[in-house]
Amino acid sequence: MKPEWPEDAHRGLWVYLEQQGTLLPVGHELLGKGRELADELGESLTAIILGHGIGDLGREAIRYGADEVLVVDHPLLEGYTTDGHAKVMAQLIEERKPNILLFGATYDGRDLAGRLAVRLSTGLTANATRLEVDREKGLLLSAVPGFGGSILAIIKSEHGRPQMSTVRPGIFAPLEPDDTRKGQIETVAVDLRPEEIRCRVVERSVLPREEIGSAERTLVAGMGTGGDLALLEELASLLEASIGVTRPLVDNGVAGRERQVGSTGVSLRSKLAIVLGASGASHFVSGLRDVGTVVAINTDENAPIFDEADVCVIGDLFELLPPLIERLEKAKMGMA
């Protein structure tokens, strides 16, 4: 193993914030949870933002909870690349020695964290859904769901700093932004040359992402819909709900991966989720944990989804939905 820095020389909790002109929602979540953990440890919360033409995202990070923001603005950091971001992050970490570093468990967050863990010789836990600290030892305890969420492993790293985790989006609540919060923004200059970035971007499509995880109401379609979402879309517009799906529907091309609910998809935080024609596999229901009220509709009275629902309706969704939609339309008109 490579030599390590003395562990007690490491101070402060850092969060790596991804941005595409605005901060990604998971960044707000990291700042909210990070604030709480930093206070508990009595350490400061530092946000790291890499990019080009970052504008006042530093200010935004402070409004959401950061004490300090390190901004690195460089033309070669416009758009994420592993080599560019890894070089800059490794340099910042080696110079300033944070104790804890959190990333969003997004595609790019996981791509970067996995690379950095080896470069820095330190521990990294993936997809944390619960975070705690041991104040005495300055240790981060990350809870990671395994096997479809039925088992939680609590992971720690006693050696190797910073202690790193990627954090599952949609789990932690952001703070209310506070315009009166004060903080420091420091711009850090870095030396980065084109030949250091070994992957060239040939094409990039950045479509606006609808984040179904933070929707207030969600309808979730399973294979029982046969991939026909027309009725669900009607109900969704009545309830102003987002639409999520189970994994087979994504695999069949009915919906994009960003709509998949479950252990390898998104966790919902909605007040209401209506699950239609999904059997209730453990990988799927782990995405419903934080939902307020779960309504399940399924033709099979023994479907496991009924164990995970508050309101259970045995029936055919194609028979139930049209009259239900009609009733709700009337009720809504009566309200207006």
Binding site: A143, L152, I154, S157
Partner: peptide, 12 residues
Amino acid sequence: GSYTIVHDLVEG
């Protein structure tokens, strides 16, 4: 050779 250790396993 590992840096992370399982501190505990709990039922979700």
